[in-house]
């Protein structure tokens, strides 16, 4: 039985995430969070993800990277998919399987144009636009999946568990 936490009226789903990941069998150890798109909730998410990732055996540095990647993913969703609205649903699933940690972030907001999601030129020193680069640096893979039924975007990030 996986851990399940609901901060407010988000949507609890798991099967479609498992399908998206083509998982054979979901691990018994799964963290699933349904939160609102309120920046005030980011601290709690970071704490829960950190505790979970340490529990599955990741080292401190890798754990920090996963937490930062999740934070950046949520920040992007709040700012871009929901235009800063604080009451919209976001689902987060963290699954360790076959030596790899998968993080899935699902929103129901404006569909991200995947062709425009990329790291920007870091030599251009200006505020903003660093989130995708940070996610790519912190994780082994970062992939935006086509919008499923219900709209929004699914972001899948993976990292080897050392």
């Amino acid at each position: 039985m996986g851990k399940k936490n609901r901060f407010c009226g988000g949507v609890y789903v798991s099967d479609k995430y498992n399908a998206a990941l083509k998982m054979k069998e979901p691990s018994e150890q799964v963290l699933q969070l349904s939160i609102c798109s309120d920046p005030k909730g980011l601290h709690d998410v970071r704490e829960q993800v950190e505790r979970f990732v340490l529990d599955v055996g990741m080292g401190d540095e890798d754990c920090s990277n996963v937490v930062l990647a999740v934070d950046e993913a949520l920040t992007n969703v709040i700012r871009h998919a929901y235009d800063g609205k604080p009451d919209q649903p976001i689902d987060i699933t963290v699954v360790p399987m076959d030596g790899e940690l998968s993080v899935i972030v699902r929103d129901y907001g404006k569909v991200a144009d995947r062709s425009k999601i990329h790291s920007r030129d870091l030599d251009d020193v200006r505020p903003g636009g660093l989130g995708v680069h940070i996610m790519q640096q912190c994780m082994d893979s970062v992939e935006y999946l086509p919008a499923p039924e219900g709209g929004g975007t699914i972001l899948v990030m993976t990292k080897n568990i050392q």
Binding site: R46, D71, T75, V125, R126, P127, G128, L130, G131, I134
Partner: peptide
Amino acid sequence: SYMDSSGVASLVKLLS
């Protein structure tokens, strides 16, 4: 104890 790209962006704005 923690900073993400939002915090970095604030400092970049200040630097500018």
